[in-house]
Design a protein around this nucleic acid. Structure first.
Lengths: 355, 355
DNA sequence: CCCCATATTGATAGCGCTGCCAACGAGCCG
DNA sequence: CGGCTCGTTGGCAGCGCTATCAATATGGGG
């Protein structure tokens, strides 16, 4: 181990290894056409000096920056945090760094903020998650700047950019079939935020499954939520104080399902004895409320990882200035998680619902 | 608005404004000693071109990078997310960017990962939150690299670096006094992770308050948790199946308090009628369990903001290569949040506890 | 045995910006 | 009025790296 009075540069490594700077650069960047002997010498020299490339210089001089950015909207979310962890997994493996930025979807300057970000930082790619994944202005700013981006769980998939998603509709179908198989007929549904694709798709899956079983979706049992716990509380009250109360409630996410459980509890309705409650996402809250929620596990972390990997892979593929055709996308598998918030409807509750 | 066929550079702005690059640089960086007239001309030119400085070039050429990093350990946490939002608030205002990195405290390469990070990226500062805020190896790596850092809620405050915290002990004292004032005498306590300062301080505050009121801390009513929901479950079981059950339980954070509420519920013990449960932090979970938890609001976001502001302020203060004396630190105010999980002990429960 | 395609290596010119220092004028003191 | 400081502006080197292209070596076909 050799210690310099300053951070070692590529020049130091080159001198020590007795090769040119360019050869060192080739080795560091794993470029081909370097003899094994030289490669070893360079690697050894770099190791002895504890050399680490300077990312600012790299991105200034070259076409790659080894930097991704993650734009998220929701300042509160487990969701955003999960996505971030997934991206970081990918970055760690690829030697990338991650810059994060929080952008309020409803702020008028969302697009401007995005434009500024990509103008100041050379980025190899940007990952977007809902709700900004569907923000026109943000997408346009990215497109104009020529920065590749991948959308997670996008609304209109067809903006020509790659995306990563799970099959929300199919998962909702499966969950609904599960409820019907338990014996539920009068199933309440709490929709998600109208602007989120996931919300629409989950309802669509529910609708399809009900239809497939010859059951009607009763409009009076469908409430419009926004994915927030608070909206779940409101919807739950409306649903539970009907005289013909449903025997099961399908909430479009776990936050709202947790809210339903809370309202039920407060109303003296036992879950799952008097009411089955199911959620969606398998968020942390699902295992922390009483009873733990039956839900669908959304592979957030894996989706985010896949998104970042697409970006990193593309950046590695030099001299490409557009995505391959067809545009890459990934569909990740979900999984039904049956916990204690679901059970067959009791006699009592069926009678009440039928009344 | 003038459009070039490439991103405008400082040279473009200089030409348009009819001044030297250096003057543009001065204006962009808000340096003094530029005549107002020139400043206006430069600003106007920059605006017309839509000029944005290139951060890579800035950090390569200069001594500032306008970049902070946030190192966090816990991959699951609301806490880490809250801190991040606070840092982003500060960054947004100061025109900084934030790089994030997740480092497992227990991984043997934590220090190495930190060293690599700071060797690759020129950083104006690093924010640390528990538990890595107390990781010796990480702190040493930062010190060796000469990168300023601020610790949030540090354990041993005296490593000579600035820190931001709340008064955990005092808050715990207040919460305990509140419980005693309600009439509770037999109060169970669930400690936090032994390696976290916050855990120790909260217990210390509890102990002091009990002593001040002439009450004994019963060792049999003190359990060691780890801040996790799961550990809360275990501790709650142990506490609640004693024949002399406490009338109140003080959990060192909200996750564990939520666990206590869940166990109580499962055991047929009503909260708060049969058992008062209080937590700490005012995490999202506190308002999402039933009943909502009485807790102490920890100003995470503000603490993080303050930490980032210290770093940014120091970076702005050119040619300083160490912190001013005395080393800056901030103590932020907490607040008691009384919700529905706490009530005076009922006759029945007092009788049982006394038995 | 020569020529050209291919593999391997090096020299050099910047990338866009800031640090340093020189240049210049104005104001001030003695 | 000389010599000084201070405020203001510009010139230029160079941060650490990669892209480009030239230079050289290697090998096969004609």
């Amino acid at each position: 181990m050799i210690v310099l009075d300053r951070k070692p540069t590529i020049t130091d490594v080159a001198k020590l290894a007795g090769v040119s700077m360019k050869t060192v650069s080739r080795v560091i960047n794993k470029e081909p056409n370097v003899r094994d002997e030289l490669r070893d010498r360079v690697l050894k020299a770099a190791d002895e000096l504890g050399y680490q490339p300077n990312f600012s210089a790299r991105s200034l001089a070259g076409v790659r920056s080894f930097q991704l950015a993650y734009l998220f909207g929701d300042p509160g979310g487990d969701y955003a945090h999960g996505v971030q962890i997934g991206i970081l997994d990918a970055c760690r493996d690829a030697g990338y760094h991650l810059v994060v930025e929080q952008i309020d979807v409803d702020a008028p300057d969302a697009a401007q903020r995005t434009a500024t970000l990509v103008a100041q930082l050379r980025l190899d790619g940007v990952v977007l998650s809902p709700p900004i994944t569907d923000h026109r202005g943000v997408l346009d700013a990215l497109k104009r700047a020529g920065v590749p981006y991948v959308r997670i769980a996008p609304d209109e998939a067809l903006d020509g950019s790659p995306y990563v998603q799970m099959d929300d509709a199919k998962a909702a179908e499966e969950l609904t079939h599960y409820l019907v198989d338990l014996g539920h007929r009068d199933i309440g549904f709490i929709k998600g935020h109208p602007r989120h694709a996931a919300g629409r798709l989950r309802f669509e899956g529910f609708r399809r499954a009900m239809e497939a079983r010859g059951l009607a979706v009763q409009p009076s049992l469908v409430e419009q939520g926004t994915f927030s716990y608070g909206s779940g509380i409101d919807c739950a009250w409306r649903l539970l104080r009907r005289r013909a109360r449903p025997t099961a409630i399908f909430a479009s996410n776990d936050d709202m399902a947790a809210a339903v459980a809370a309202v039920a509890h407060e109303s003296g309705i036992e879950v799952p004895e008097d009411l089955t409650v199911v959620g969606f996402d398998d968020a942390p809250i699902a295992q922390v409320v009483w009873p733990p929620l039956t839900t669908v596990c959304q592979p957030i972390r894996e989706m985010a990882r896949a998104a970042a990997d697409l970006l990193i892979g593309r950046a590695a593929d030099k001299d490409r200035d557009s995505w391959p055709d067809p545009v890459p996308h990934r569909l990740l598998a979900h999984e039904l998680r049956v916990r204690r918030s679901s059970a067959p409807p009791g006699e009592r509750t069926v009678a009440r619902a039928r009344r």
